[in-house]
């Protein structure tokens, strides 16, 4: 069972803010989902290899050659705030050196 505090921690990890009282309802919903998926604990998985990719293919390489890419202007055409060719964001480091 996960409680309100754990929900708040998961929200923080997910970069999501919770509204007033939402941690209680989310704890209930998450517990109901986790309660359902808990049946996997019954399964004997000793010496079973995990599957991350169904066809088992890995490390697909292409020749290391340059090719034309998308023009910068087009690539930035959906960016909310630009300053010339640069993406604008709010301050990252506080001026007093904290954060």
């Amino acid at each position: 069972m996960i409680g309100e505090d754990e929900v708040k921690k998961i929200a923080l990890l997910s970069h999501l803010n919770l509204e007033e009282g939402e941690s209680v309802s989310l704890a209930n919903e998450l517990n109901s989902i986790l309660g359902y998926v808990d049946k996997l604990q019954k399964l004997d998985t000793t010496s079973v290899e995990p599957t991350s990719h169904v066809h088992g293919s890995k490390n697909i390489m292409r020749p290391d050659v340059t090719s034309p890419s998308m023009p910068t202007e087009l690539a930035l055409s959906n960016t909310p705030e630009l300053s010339g060719r640069f993406i604008k964001v709010p301050i990252i480091i506080e001026q007093n050196g904290e954060n």
Binding site: H15, L16, N17, L76, N78, T79, P80, E81, I87, V89, P90, I91, I92, E94, N99
Partner: peptide, 19 residues
């Protein structure tokens, strides 16, 4: 909220911008 997609107008710093 950085490169594309919805960006909240309320954010005062980067962390807030994400969340």
């Amino acid at each position: 909220g950085i490169r594309y997609g919805y960006r909240s107008p309320q954010a005062r710093d980067l962390k807030q911008l994400y969340s």
